[in-house]
Design a binder for these strands. Structure first.
Lengths: 206, 206
DNA sequence: TCCTGTGAAATTCTTCACAGCC
DNA sequence: GGCTGTGAAGAATTTCACAGGA
């Protein structure tokens, strides 16, 4: 497959949300223009994004909401359930673990780990917090596809490396520490302070 | 000032973290190459990013960590404290509100709001949760610079609009709902499900 | 020699504009 | 008439490559 820009993938994921919304409202078709308004982009952009994967629309008509939804789900690999472990059961980790929205979208939390003995043994939405010491053993057993890293920054590189050695190929990292991982491990970052600083820049240089 | 790409601003914010790290380790200078390795980019990119704002380095030497740190803080507008309100004291909102890291980085939580009467009146790190009904009145009094939106998606557009009418010009939004706001309001989005879907795409099309 | 600063080239991403189909 | 699909143009961003100062 031709290489697709990350920005395109991100927009597809957004389109998917609006499509689901639209479908719920009972609309059978949607035009690139309508999708564009929801996603804050242009109709040409929407058509271009979709064109990388095929032609799903009907000229003069737009796209079948149902079909486009299913196509995008297929493109993004959302036709299956992904198994997820969360490492770090602090404020962020447990907020995530307790978030039902994941399972609904096909991401199942199969394990939670923490280094703090006070937390080990507690249960979040049916999953018992395990000691991070047994990470490797448990990960081998649980076979997660992805890991969410919500540990203190100083622990992040080590935990990430350990996850990689037992075969985890995708990590969502809430720290900012530089992780050096094999090239076949995909890492995405979420960092609140970073986003706030971008807002700070915008306010300062408006 | 010339328009600077968002990607540049994001990288500056990352550089800042590594610089702080570096400074702590007692290094007086840092080269573009060293910053690049930490930030996952190239030395040319680092130099180009910095060159938009001036020339801070010494040829043959690199950059003074102390000076560069302070320059970037200046560029990003981090020489002051920013006042922040959090709307939505659910799992995510309260995890954020309880996160001491903000204050340390110059973002002070001055107000928290929720629609649930069971939550109103409780206190998080010294800030009492107020009823979202009094949002306008309280925001006028608290004069926040930014708002973090952690409400259910269906409530997001309304709350965002209300924040905008009382003068909030920067919003960090955890929902995916399309907000339509005046052009002078900067919005940044954080969406976990979206990031997980990008990982799903990466795993599916590796 | 080492490393910055920066035009110029290369690449990537977005927008335009229109033929073609419903 | 309305809207898609897509080459071609245009804009933005990254990389190259090298002159020049410490």
């Amino acid at each position: 497959m031709k290489k697709i820009a990350e920005s395109t993938v991100r927009r597809l994921s957004l389109y998917l949300r609006y499509l689901e919304e639209f479908e719920k409202l009972g609309h059978d078709t949607i035009s690139s223009g309508q999708l564009a308004t929801s996603g804050g982009t242009t109709s040409a952009q929407v058509r271009k994004d979709l064109s990388f994967f095929g032609s799903f629309g009907k000229r003069g008509m737009g796209y079948s909401t149902r079909e486009l939804t299913s196509r995008i789900r297929g493109i993004l690999g959302l036709e299956r359930t992904w198994r997820l472990v969360i490492v770090g059961a602090g404020k962020i980790g447990s907020a995530l673990a307790g978030h039902r929205g994941f399972r609904d979208r096909g991401f199942e939390v199969v394990g939670i780990f923490d280094a703090d003995p006070h937390r080990v043994g507690h249960t979040l939405l049916g999953v018992t917090i395990a000691d991070v010491k047994s990470l490797e053993r448990d990960v081998k057993r649980l076979r997660p596809d992805m890991a969410v890293l919500a540990v203190p920054p100083e622990a992040a590189p080590d935990v990430a490396a350990r996850l990689a050695t037992v075969g985890v190929k995708a990590i969502l990292d809430f720290s900012t520490a530089p992780l050096h991982l094999p090239a076949d491990v995909t890492v995405r970052r979420m960092n609140l302070a970073l986003e706030l600083e971008i807002l700070s820049y915008a306010l300062t240089n408006r």
